[in-house]
Design a protein around this nucleic acid. Structure first.
Lengths: 341, 341
DNA sequence: CTGTTAGCGCGTTCAT
DNA sequence: ATGAACGCGCTAACAG
C-alpha cells in the first residue's frame, strides 16, 4: 500500500497526492477530495519512516523518564501523550530504570538514531557525559522538573514550594519537623532544592535544623512508609510533624503513623508536595504543583520549538505557581502526644 | 553523519561498513575493526528510519495501554521497556485514555504507519472495528491480560484466580462477601472473568449471590475507596468481607474501612488480586499474578515472533500460575462487629 | 569476503 | 496547480 497506488486510483501524480494528504503546498479542491477518497478506500496512511527520510521530520518525540511506576511520572506520560497525539505525534518512551547498562544504551545509542524530532526529559539528573550526549542529539529538548543549562524548562520553584510547606507547619506551631527528602545529585544546590527550602524555613523561624530528623533517600511510597516508621518509633526523635518531598512519601508516612497507633493529625502532622490523586482519600495537606499543567505546557513548548526554524529556538523557562491545599493531615501540635512504640 | 562518511574514513565501501556494524553477513575481522573504530571516532549511529525503509525492520515495538497511571500498567511498561531495550528495541507508547477521538486516531492512523515491527497490547477491550484495524497492521501482536482470538496471549486464569480469592474468604467462614469488580465489555463472559469466578465460588459453597454486594465499575484506588465506603456504611448490607478485583481497589477499601472506624481484618476482611508493591505496607492478602513475569514473557514472546519467518508465527497462549499470599487483611469473621456509620 | 547497483516510500525541488 | 525527476540513508541482491 504505497502512495503510488493511491495516485493511480485517484488519477493524479504522487506529488499531488502527497501534497493533498500532507496539507503542504497548494492543491485544488478537487485534487484534495480525490486524494482523500482514494486514500480512504484503500486504507492508506503514509509510512512514517519514508516520510521521515524524505522530509527530515519524523513526527515522533522521545520521552525520557527515570521511572514509570510513580504518580508524578505516569501522570506526565499520560498528559504528554495526549497532547502530542492531538498534533499527530507519536511518543517513544525511554525508561532509564533498567540498570546502568540500559541507561548507557539510551544515551549512547537510542537517542542518537534520529528517531525523534524532539525530546521531553522528566526530572533527569544527568552526569556530564550524558548531558553532552543529550545535546549532541541536536534536537530540541524540553525539561520538566529538572535543571539543565541551555535547555528549555518547565518547572516549579522547588525551594519556595518546600519553604511554603514547611512554613505551614511552623505557622501551626510545630518545631520538631522531620523531612523525608531526596538524595541530591553531585552538584546539589541548597538554594534551589526542596531540602534547601525546608532548611531555610526552619532558620527563618529560628528553629535549629536537627540532622537526625532529615532522612534522605529516593523513596517510593513503600520506602517512605518504612522511613517514617523508623522516624516515628524512635523515642529519641519525637517529631510532631513530617514534611515529605512527595505526596507518595507523605501517604506512606500517614500509613506508618496509623500502624504505630498514632493519629494523624492529632499526634503527628504530615504535609507533602504534588497534588496526588489520592490526596483527598488520605486527607493529605499538600502543595499542589499542577503536574498535568506542567506536562501540557512542556509538550506544547516542545511542539512550538519543532515548528520554529532551528535558528529561532531560544531556550524558554516557564515556572508554574503552586498552591497550598490544606486538608486534614495537619493541625497544631499536641502537647501530650503518647509515646509511640 | 552518514554511513558514507564512515566508509570513507575506514577506507571501505558503505556496504561493508553496513554489514560490519549491523552484524548481518560475513565480514573480515579487520573490516569489522576498521568500521567500528571509524564509527566510534565519528560518533556515528545508523538512522533507524533509513534502516527501516531499506530493511523493513524498524527495531521498534508499539505498546498499547488504556492507562499509564495504574500499578499494573506502569509495571508492565517498565518491565517490557527493559526487556525490549536489551534487544535493541525502542518502545513507542500508545495511550488510549485521552478520549474517544485520540483513541480512534491510534487505531486508524498511528498504528498503520509502519513505525512498529510488533505490538504489545495490554488488557485491551476492543470493539470489532478496532480489532480489525489492529490485525490489519499486519505485524505480530501479543496480548497481556486480555483475550483476542487468533493472537498470541500471556495471561492468567481470571476465573480461577477470583475463585481462589473468594474461596479463601469462604474457608475462613465468610458468607456476606462483597465484590468490587470491573464493568465487563459487551461480550462479557461469566465463565472466564473474575466476576464469574467470584460467583462460582459462592455457589460452590451454597451461598446465594447478593446483587447488592456486587459493585461494578472501573475503579482507581480513589474510586475503590468511595465504593467501599458506600458499601461499608450502608447498615442494610453489612458485608464481613470484600473481594476486590485489583489490589488498588483493595487498598482503597482498607483505607475506607479505617476511616469508618472499622478494623481490618477484625471487622472486615479484604482480599485483592495483583501482587501490588504496596501489599506488604497494607498487610494486604492478595492473589499474586506475577505481573513482571507476565510482561517479561510477553515481550520475549514478541521478540521471538519478530525473529521468526512470517509463515512460522503460530499464536501461542501462555497462562501463568498465580499464588495466594495471605497477609493480615483477612481473618475469620467477627460475630459482634460494631455497626458502622 | 568485498564493492557496485538498485531500490525501500516518501517529500521536495524544478519545470511546466 | 500539477507532474517528472531526484534524493533522503540505508540494506539487499548481485557480481566479482
Amino acid at each position: 500500500m504505497t502512495i503510488k497506488e493511491v495516485a493511480e486510483r485517484a488519477g493524479l501524480s504522487v506529488a499531488t497526492v502527497s501534497r493533498a494528504l500532507s496539507g503542504r503546498g497548494h492543491v485544488s479542491e478537487t485534487a484534495r477530495t480525490l486524494s482523500a477518497q482514494a486514500a480512504r478506500e484503500l486504507g492508506y496512511v503514509a509510512s512514517y519512516n519514508a516520510a521521515s527520510l524524505a522530509s527530515g521530520r519524523s513526527k515522533n518525540v522521545g520521552l525520557v523518564v527515570p521511572w514509570v511506576n510513580r504518580w508524578f511520572f505516569s501522570t506526565v506520560i499520560e498528559t504528554a501523550s495526549t497532547v502530542l497525539a492531538a498534533d499527530g505525534y507519536d511518543l517513544t518512551l525511554y525508561y532509564l530504570g533498567g540498570g546502568k547498562r540500559e541507561r548507557d544504551l539510551v544515551f549512547s545509542d537510542f537517542l542518537l538514531r534520529k528517531r525523534v524530532d524532539g525530546l521531553l526529559a522528566v526530572s533527569l539528573e544527568l552526569d556530564d557525559a550524558e548531558r553532552a550526549d543529550l545535546l549532541r542529539v541536536g534536537t530540541p529538548v524540553v525539561c520538566i522538573g529538572g535543571v539543565m543549562p541551555g535547555v528549555s524548562t518547565v518547572s516549579i520553584d522547588d525551594f519556595a514550594t518546600a519553604r511554603l510547606a514547611t512554613a505551614h507547619l511552623i505557622a501551626l506551631g510545630h518545631e520538631r519537623i522531620a523531612h523525608l527528602g531526596w538524595e541530591g545529585p553531585g552538584d546539589f544546590d541548597l538554594a534551589t532544592t526542596r531540602q534547601g527550602g525546608y532548611a531555610h524555613a526552619l532558620s527563618e523561624a529560628g528553629i535549629a535544623l536537627a540532622p537526625e530528623l532529615l532522612v534522605l533517600g529516593d523513596f517510593t511510597m513503600a520506602e517512605g512508609y518504612a522511613a517514617a516508621k523508623r522516624l516515628l518509633s524512635d523515642p529519641r526523635l519525637c517529631p510532631t510533624a513530617i514534611f515529605a518531598a512527595s505526596d507518595e512519601m507523605a501517604i506512606g508516612a500517614i500509613t506508618a503513623a496509623r500502624d504505630l497507633g498514632l493519629d494523624v493529625p492529632r499526634d503527628v502532622s504530615v504535609v507533602g508536595i504534588d497534588g496526588h490523586d489520592l490526596g483527598p482519600v488520605f486527607g493529605l495537606t499538600t502543595v499542589d504543583q499542577h503536574v498535568r499543567e506542567q506536562a501540557t505546557q512542556a509538550a506544547a513548548l516542545l511542539l512550538g520549538l519543532l515548528d520554529a526554524e532551528p535558528g529561532e529556538r531560544e531556550p524558554v523557562h516557564a515556572e508554574l505557581e503552586v498552591d497550598l491545599v490544606v486538608r486534614t493531615s495537619t493541625m497544631v501540635p499536641n502537647a501530650d502526644r503518647p509515646s509511640s512504640r
